[in-house]
């Protein structure tokens, strides 16, 4: 009897779990993300700082870097410039750089190309 109750409950749990299956992908679910990637109007204050602030400052702000961020600061313009090669390796998961953001997925391809664009234009403080 105990065995029957248990097998029924296992099957029910299974049905409940699978009844909430969805087949979503971010492109179809959020069509506004499909806008073409703007890599021409990339500026430090308009593009790079918001990106860093969304994904990096929880560990790499001036306040948190010493404890959480391996002392790598990404808040001031000069710090970002001197770390740019490392940031590029980290967000692209290439080379021997520690992949970032830590414990999360890679940044969107557009965000990475925007960072690339800013670097290749000479890392202007604009």
């Amino acid at each position: 009897m105990k065995r029957i109750i248990l097998s029924v409950s296992v099957v029910i749990t299974f049905i409940i779990l699978f009844s909430s299956c969805y087949y979503d992908n971010e492109e179809a679910l959020y069509p506004e993300l499909n806008q073409t990637c703007d890599t021409t109007n990339v500026t430090f204050n308009g593009t790079i700082v918001p990106l860093l602030s969304d994904y990096c400052y929880s560990c790499h702000s001036n306040a948190t870097a010493a404890t959480a961020g391996n002392n790598i600061r990404l808040e001031d313009y000069a710090d970002v410039v001197s770390n740019a090669v490392m940031i590029r390796g980290s967000i692209k998961h290439t080379g021997s750089y520690s992949p970032m953001p830590k414990n999360g997925g890679m940044l969107k391809a557009c965000q990475i190309s925007q960072f690339d664009a800013w670097v290749s234009k000479g890392m202007l403080n604009n």
Binding site: F18, S20, Y23, D24, N25, E26, L29
Partner: peptide, 13 residues
Amino acid sequence: VHRNLVATELDPN
């Protein structure tokens, strides 16, 4: 393995 949300259309659920 079933994932309810994936990044792009090219990624299978």
